[in-house]
Design a protein around this nucleic acid. Structure first.
Lengths: 215, 215
DNA sequence: CGGTAAGCTGACGGCATGACAGGACAAGTG
DNA sequence: CACTTGTCCTGTCATGCCGTCAGCTTACCG
């Protein structure tokens, strides 16, 4: 499928090699959660993994390269977000539930992977194509579903003609991502998690359907 | 007022000192726009400013400290965003215009300062209090106005009781910020700038008033 | 002019980076 | 069992950035 795992100098990695490689990724992941991206050093990751910097460089060109690897793993995992929308209705009470579940699932996913997602977001914002392709890959599952929904509602005349489905969907997804990564910020702003979710769901519902939900 | 500008070792900075200090800040700012945050080195900034690394450390504890300084300057400047909302109406055609101008001004501001804002966002997401206080300071002007608006509309019964003004306003502001910093991403997604703005304005209007705008 | 404080830098120990060659180890072969 | 092969890891090294200090230069003021 994805081709064999290879070291930087072209050797194919065996069982043991893959294990240390994965261990390095895990330790890097942990490191990213506990200290600022800028301060994550190869030597620390290696130490934490009980190995040497040289070993790290055998598997990854640099920290960035390793982060891309982790993010890639997460991206395939994140394709599961599609389930949140597949075959769901946006009408009546069911619509309100769809919105709620989308928000819930999305925030959950983001919370679980916040450290890597922060870095991906940064890389994307800085204009690094690899990172924002990755970001798209993660968000596309949700985004595409939303685009389809809006387009469909539009063809039925339930959404105004001059709405651009891609723009609306993209903006809503960006909102979810942003709120998710600044959840702590909201708390100091005097907004509790439990209160945040229904309000987000409301905004999503309004944006997609153009109407208030019936609860 | 803000107290005199001081060097790290406590001396007060004179005219010349403040000039080099500012030059270092400018060069850092430029550097941040052209290369990834992680790769910005003190030595490069110093070289670009035609001075030595030692000089840099005379004025700032580290790169982060200097970034905070730049961000602080930008934050006071960003207080001007309040104008976008002060005394504006959210009713009828005027409401639609308010939403449009808010989006416009916000995106403009973000575009102008994207490099520093990226870093502030990262710092805030990583949980650094200094950074997210700063982020709040920047966003508060807009956010507070929006909270007030929603609260007012709510007291008039034009917005549902169970809406949390702070949550809605915060989410919309987060959306604007996120979309602004990923504008390029939208372009590759097939959405043009010009199309993006009205759709954002629509979402803002819907979120604040609960109704579609009358155009 | 001389004193004082501001302003700048060369130089240095310390640490991270990234490359390499060589040693340890597991697995297969005769 | 000795031998071979290929994977896997690390010691070591040159290079370059970090962050600090002592000391030199420059500006200001009486």
């Amino acid at each position: 499928m994805t081709g064999q795992v290879r070291t930087v100098d072209g050797r194919v990695a065996g069982r043991r090699g893959q294990a240390t490689r994965q261990k390095l990724l895990d330790c890097l992941s942990e490191m990213l959660s506990s200290s600022p991206y800028r301060d994550v050093k190869v030597i620390d990751v290696a130490r934490k993994a009980g190995t040497s910097p040289a070993t790290f460089y055998q598997y990854f060109p640099d920290v960035e390269g390793a982060v891309l690897e982790i993010a890639e793993q997460m991206a395939t995992e994140g394709a599961g977000l599609t389930e949140l929308l597949e075959g769901r209705s946006w009408v009546g009470k069911a619509g309100w539930q769809t919105a709620q579940e989308l928000v819930d699932g999305f925030l959950e996913f983001w919370k679980k992977n916040d450290a890597i997602l922060r870095v991906v977001d940064l890389g994307a914002a800085e204009g690094d194509k690899r990172f924002y392709k990755l970001r798209m890959k993660i968000l596309n599952s949700v985004n595409n579903s939303l685009v389809d929904t809006v387009t469909e509602l539009q063809s039925k005349g339930r959404v105004d003609k001059d709405v651009n489905p891609a723009a609306v969907a993209g903006s809503l997804v960006a909102m979810l991502a942003a709120v998710a990564s600044h959840q702590k910020g909201f708390q100091t702003w005097g907004v509790k998690q439990a209160e945040l979710k229904p309000n987000l769901a409301l905004l999503v519902h309004l944006g997609i359907t153009g109407r208030k939900p019936t609860k």
